[in-house]
Nucleic acid binder design. Structure first.
Lengths: 337, 337
DNA sequence: AAGGGTTGTCGAAGCGCTTCAACAAGTGGT
DNA sequence: ACCACTTGTTGAAGCGCTTCGACAACCCTT
């Protein structure tokens, strides 16, 4: 391996000069810089990450802690992860992938060993066991998701309360008076991940304001589960003309079931989904949806965490405003036509 | 931060002794070990990763290079990534997440900087630009997928040729004589990722042997694309009674379309999918499928790469045997009943 | 009782980089 | 012509760990 010392010798300067060319922390004459850069290229030099981390106590790595689960919002997780990796590279950092499984212990390990300069946590629960550690570890950290008490922390998330509200508004404007919500799997509510609850609260609050009758039911992502949930919904509220679906795995089953029952979308019933845009346009009916801006969430998380690495302080809660895109799955309520 | 020197002082031994307790590379008396471990616990010591990497020239990190794409086999990628992360931890290593986007440059960077001891590459193309670098970088590397020339490399993958063969066999045994294959999106074949081609070859070869007429059509993962592909298939081969689906995003659309056309599964047509088991059981009909053993692939990749880190040499091509699970989507061909 | 092995511990030399204090050389104000 | 700066460069001191050779202390052999 080529070392900095060899580059220095080759360029006829001292090691510190090479280091300053690399970091830009001191001014270097154009001529010297040129010569050093030339040597670096010729020798194919790459700074040793370990040595750099040791000397500077900065690893240029950020850790991303991801849920170890493949049964739920996989596309969203994946997109966030890739956005994090891409954005981190743009800030000259790399990403260390941790699984949620390790829990608080991973936080301790990564912080303690200086493996990463900062952390991004996904799948944050309302009362997450990792939070106390983060708060007093004093390492930069950003949560994707919002815990019950976000004080002293930095969080990014889609504004799910507003998302819920937006969905009802859209349906209410189209004249729908009976709306059913196909929520996430019951397990999601039980884990108290927050976003599902906030969506539900947003839906309920706005529905009450607008005089819309709302029925909220959790639902697993399989066809069979959706079939059961749908029949129970229609039993209880036969007049339902609007659906809001949060569990993206339930979308295809729902559309398929509605078609089977001879209910046309959007003529007879309207469907609004909360899902990544890509999912919305691939469905059998192009779905009116509120996008989950996974890429944006990952990108902002990195930007916020980088700001903290650079020394910025203070807590911060960044809620991304939801955007609803009307596509082919929603239309005027039958009664209102 | 607590350092090894402080632990040594606290335990009343030298720094090297602490180091040997940690690494187990020299024998240490039970009494001393005990005392040192006690001090480590009391002080909450974590070895500094940078210093360790510098001194030992081993980072205990393996890099995972993942395609930057969210339109294709997402669940498989995700499951592989999580399996890699989990297995790596079991070997006391961490995982650095790289995106395919950076290409060969990332290989050079990671190898050159000693950021990672080894690499695992996904989404390997037949003539991948990263391979020459890997071959002479001399760092341990494992490919998930198989390039045109795997010499000097270690590869793991599902045996897609055998997978194709297995699908046809299953349908042939049930008496199907006209089988249509819904392949991956055309772009996948154009990128020459290998697995799609190998599956097709396996299907064709076995079909020829068994006297099955085979129609292979690439297909995007959207409902609209599937609708088009299906109608073209049925135009061309109205007698088609068996389907093999490789593009998992096309599965739900296909089932939905068949139902709409009044073709019952499995009474009128049989469907065999090539997809993760989880997808197979969540569909509207529990699908007969050949599983893509994503977890196993990730796990084996790590095990193989760890063996190389430990010094094992030689090339190796590990093909995981496909397993077909008969579920509710395949049955005797109508003519044969 | 002497020699030859083990076993357990230690001191010191680095690993390759960053960064600080120091200094040489040039710049401009007076 | 002098001082006070600014600019560009350097040497040396670590950062916290691993690892090698050395060495004491003990155990068997003979």
């Amino acid at each position: 391996m080529v070392t900095l010392a060899e580059v220095a010798r080759h360029a006829g300067v001292s090691a510190s000069t090479v280091s300053y060319v690399l970091s830009g922390k001191r001014s270097i004459s154009a001529a010297t810089r040129e010569r050093v850069e030339q040597s670096i290229r010729e020798l194919g030099y790459h700074p040793n990450a370990g040595a750099r981390a040791l000397a500077s106590s900065r690893s240029n790595v950020i850790a991303l802690m991801m849920p170890l689960r493949t049964d739920m919002y996989v596309p969203v997780m994946m997109e966030i992860a890739l956005a994090v990796a891409t954005t981190a590279r743009a800030h000259d950092h790399d990403v260390l992938l941790l699984t949620g499984e390790e829990g608080p212990e991973a936080v301790r390990r990564v912080v303690g060993s200086g493996l990463a300069d900062a952390m991004i946590l996904m799948d944050v629960e309302l009362d997450d066991a990792r939070l106390p550690l983060l708060r007093d570890a004093g390492r930069p950290a950003v949560l994707i998701g919002i815990p019950a008490d976000p004080s002293g922390l930095t969080c990014v998330d889609l504004d799910f309360t507003a998302t819920g509200a937006l969905c009802v508004e859209h349906l209410a404007e189209l004249g729908h008076r009976d709306v059913a919500v196909v929520g996430e799997a019951a397990a999601v509510y039980e884990r108290h991940t927050g976003f599902a609850e906030r969506t539900r609260d947003g839906l309920r609050a706005r529905a009450a304001e607008l005089g819309v009758r709302l029925l909220h039911r959790p639902c697993e992502g399989s066809y069979a589960a959706m079939a059961g949930t749908l029949s129970r919904i229609l039993d209880e509220r036969p007049g339902t003309t609007g659906f809001v679906v949060q569990n993206e795995a339930a979308i295809d089953p729902l559309l398929s079931l509605l078609r089977q029952q001879g209910r046309a979308v959007p003529e007879d019933v309207s469907v609004v989904a909360i899902c990544p845009d890509q999912v919305a346009v691939q469905a059998s009916v192009r779905l009116t949806s509120v996008a989950i801006p996974a890429h944006e969430m990952g990108r902002r998380a990195v930007e916020l965490v980088m700001a903290r690495v650079r020394g910025e302080r203070g807590e911060r809660l960044e809620l991304l405003p939801p955007r609803l895109t009307a596509r082919a799955s929603s239309g005027p309520a039958p009664a209102a036509r």
